[in-house]
């Protein structure tokens, strides 16, 4: 479905800047590079584990630019006390992954 992506353009720009600051290799960030950033949110590790599961859409243990944006979006939602969903809502699936 061509539902608009839940991640707003201005947020995506912000997430991309963080993504690039973590020095992606072949456009991918490994878990150990992303982990400190997500831990910085002070969210419980089990919540971050769920954020990772939902954002690592191809389950390759790495996050690409879009997957990283999904992870950041879920972290910000959790910080605003929005519970992390059990499954990725269709609106959150990056257009590149549909």
């Amino acid at each position: 479905a061509d539902i608009p992506w839940a991640v707003k353009v201005e947020d995506k720009v912000k997430y991309d800047a963080i993504f690039d600051s973590l020095v992606p290799v072949n456009g991918l960030l490994s878990g150990d590079k992303v982990k400190p950033v997500l831990l910085n949110s002070k969210l419980p590790v089990d919540v971050l584990g769920r954020v990772w599961e939902l954002s690592d859409i191809d389950h390759d243990g790495m996050l690409d630019r879009d997957e990283f944006a999904v992870a950041m979006f879920l972290v910000y939602c959790a910080l605003e006390k929005e519970p992390v969903p059990m499954s990725l809502p269709p609106a959150l699936v990056p257009p590149s992954k549909r």
């Binding site: 878990g31 150990d32 992303v34 982990k35 997500l38 590790v45 089990d46 971050l48 584990g49 769920r50 990772w52 599961e53 690592d56 389950h59 390759d60 243990g61 059990m86």
Partner: peptide, 13 residues
Amino acid sequence: QFPTGSSSTNPFL
């Protein structure tokens, strides 16, 4: 129940 995911690809598990 949420799939706990595999620790091999999840740095938090």
